[in-house]
Every structure is written in structure tokens, then in C-alpha cells.
Computed example of a mutant assay.
Amino acid sequence: MGNLADRIEEYLKRILEQASEGCIVLQRSELAGEFSCVPSQINYVLDTRFTIERGYLVESRRGGGGYLRIIRLGWGIEGQYQQVMRQLIGKQLSCDRANALVERLVDEELVTVREAAMIKSVLSADALGGEFREWDVLRARLMKTILTTLSRDDLL
């Protein structure tokens, strides 16, 4: 079924899908016990696979009464995700963060795999190469334009 990180990710996504509120609250130690791993492995999965670019907010409190809250951000016309992404993109956007965001667009079925490949290629370092030095600034502007276009009423 894949490595441990893949199994943990799949498990968390499955229970998130079943949650009617769009969020889940878990104990890190209980989750680590269920997968027979150390809590830092859970942290790794959360840090790499449940990022804001991928449409998740993770709240965490460590210690005795600690918890993990994973929230799946909505994508509707007034969805939280677009608002959060526009704020987080800011004035600069790295290629890695742009790619993660494009993967979320595929997950939400807002773009096809082919469209995602085109967007990624346009935003790639190779496509944006040359003497210009502000590639992350340009990439941020382009991504904001893409998000705005996808958010238009007549497209959703």
C-alpha cells in the first residue's frame, strides 16, 4: 500500500471525507500508536501533505492535553481557500508552492490533469528563465490571475 507516510495521509483524508464538519480532531499520540510510529512521523505527514497550498489548515497543541485539528478549506465562490491563498501568495510565490496549489486545483476538479500540466509548465523556472530576476513576483501575479479566473461565477 505504500510507505508509512502514504498510509497515514490516506487514513487522515479518509476520515476527513467522512467528517460532516469538514474537520477532524485527533490526539497525535493515539494516531502514532495506531500506526506504530513516533509522533514526529505524524508531524512529517502534516507538514508535507496537509499544507495550506493543498487546502488544509492544521492546528496543533502539544503536551498532555494536546490535539491535532485538521480543517479542509472549502472552495465555493466565497470559499475560505481562495481568500487564504490570495493572502498567502502575497507578492512572491515559489515554484514548489505553486505546484502544490495546482495539485489542489486538480483535486478539486477545477482543472484537468492536462490543464494542470500546462499551468505548471508556464510557472516553471525553465519557462520563466532569462535575465529577469523577479520570477517569484511574476509567478505570484500569474497564480492570482488563475485563481481569480477560476473563481468567476460563470466558470464554477
Rank of each mutant, 00 (worst) to 15 (best):
D6I: 04
D6G: 02
R7G: 07
E9Y: 06
L12V: 03
I15K: 05
L16R: 06
L16F: 01
E17C: 00
S20F: 04
I24F: 02
I24V: 15
V25L: 05
V25Q: 10
L26G: 02
L26W: 01
Q27H: 08
R28L: 09
S29F: 05
L31I: 05
L31A: 04
S36M: 10
C37R: 00
P39C: 06
Q41P: 00
Y44W: 08
V45E: 10
L46K: 05
D47S: 15
D47W: 00
T48N: 15
R49P: 02
F50A: 09
I52P: 01
L57V: 14
V58Q: 06
R62K: 15
G63Y: 06
G64F: 04
G65D: 03
Y67S: 14
R69A: 05
G74M: 02
G76W: 07
I77W: 13
E78C: 03
Q82V: 11
R86E: 14
Q87C: 01
Q87A: 14
G90W: 04
Q92F: 00
Q92Y: 03
L93T: 03
S94F: 03
A100Y: 02
E103R: 14
R104F: 06
R104M: 08
L105S: 06
V106D: 04
E108F: 05
E109C: 05
R114C: 00
E115A: 14
M118F: 13
I119P: 04
K120T: 08
K120A: 09
V122L: 15
V122G: 00
V122W: 12
V122E: 12
V122F: 12
L123K: 04
S124E: 10
A125D: 15
A125I: 07
A125Q: 11
A127N: 13
G130T: 08
G130M: 09
F132Y: 14
R133V: 13
R133Y: 05
R133G: 05
V137P: 00
V137T: 13
V137F: 10
L138G: 02
R141Q: 13
M143I: 08
K144D: 12
T145M: 15
T145F: 03
R152E: 14
D153T: 12
D153W: 10
L155N: 14
